[in-house]
């Protein structure tokens, strides 16, 4: 039983990191209906910036976290401005291809020797790991930090979206660009802001990922990003609670498969569950299936 609860804790840790990334996917999809393939790579940049922050420049880790967040937000906004905006009103697939291009660019650019280099880097944690054992279940302070950070930022995000003018603008734009413009909302600025928030969250996710799984490399964002995206779809893309729910489910599924079925099959099982859920509920668990208007 203790082992089972231990797996749940491990799954929760993974799920929380996924949640931070999934939020960025879901917010961008909600507002411009684009699968932002480069988001996983923004997350990777966050992991590296945070790591260099607290090792090379010896900053306290919360400061490094904020720096990573700001850097990622800047990359997200730049990316939107340079790569996505020219294609905003072109066919959706064109924007998707340019997103894939942006993703490749970030991966290969960061792999250059004078940036982050192409090799795996093992992360030296900036804090001492303390382990508590409760009824045979090991809980570390890193896990607690992850939980607290995610909860804090989720609360802030909810407040931002439902209690501020910018949040109202975001909700309006995600509903209808033209109507938003008629109501005096600056659509371009709101979209940029959405990218900033989503990418900033991915940056935090990157730093926390480095804490939890202390080995990073420049192609880290491909699989992790994809799984976070899948989590967002599972929960119902475009919905913030959906992204969190999907991410938590995804974390549990992966850890449980690795623990009780086969660690090689963890991706396959996760994706099989996704396909089954999509067949039963085509818009995800929390998504509403809107009938097509003619």
């Amino acid at each position: 039983m203790a082992i089972f609860i231990q797996q749940i804790v491990n799954g929760l840790q993974l799920g929380l990191v996924y949640a931070l990334i999934a939020l960025g996917y879901t917010m961008v999809y909600g507002i411009i209906k684009l699968i932002n393939f480069a988001h996983g790579d923004v997350f990777m940049v966050g992991a590296f910036v945070g790591f260099f922050g607290y090792t090379v420049t010896k900053l306290p880790w919360p400061v490094a976290l904020v720096i990573a967040m700001v850097t990622c937000a800047a990359i997200g906004v730049l990316n939107e401005r340079l790569v996505y905006r020219p294609l905003r009103y072109a066919a959706k697939i064109s924007a998707l291809i340019s997103a894939i291009g942006a993703s490749f660019f970030l991966e290969y650019f960061c792999s250059l020797n004078f940036i982050f280099g192409p090799n795996y880097i093992s992360v030296t944690l900036p804090l001492k790991v303390i382990t508590w054992i409760i009824d045979g279940v090991r809980i570390t302070n890193v896990q607690v930090i992850i939980l607290v950070t995610v909860v804090v930022f989720l609360t802030l995000l909810q407040l931002l979206i439902f209690r501020t003018k910018l949040g109202a603008a975001m909700r309006t734009v995600s509903f209808d660009h033209d109507a938003a413009r008629l109501m005096g909302v600056d659509v371009d600025k709101t979209i940029s802001f959405t990218f900033a928030v989503g990418s900033g969250l991915a940056g935090i996710g990157g730093v926390l990922f480095g804490f939890a799984y202390p080995e990073i490399w420049t192609f880290l964002g491909v699989m992790t990003g994809l799984k976070a995206f899948i989590a967002a779809v599972l929960g119902g893309i475009g919905l913030i609670p959906g992204a969190v729910l999907g991410a938590l489910i995804m974390g549990q599924v992966e850890i449980m498969t690795a623990a009780y079925v086969s660690s090689q099959a963890r991706d396959a099982v996760a994706f099989a569950i996704l396909i089954i859920v999509l067949l039963i509920r085509p818009s995800g668990i929390l998504g509403r299936n809107e009938p097509e208007k003619i």
């Binding site: 066919a91 291009g101 250059l112």
Partner: peptide
């Protein structure tokens, strides 16, 4: 080592210039 970077840039530029 720049292969990937150039490949990505070609992809982005082509799709922005000729989105169809």
């Amino acid at each position: 080592a720049f292969r990937g970077v150039i490949y990505a840039l070609i992809l982005i530029v082509v799709i922005i210039v000729r989105s169809q």
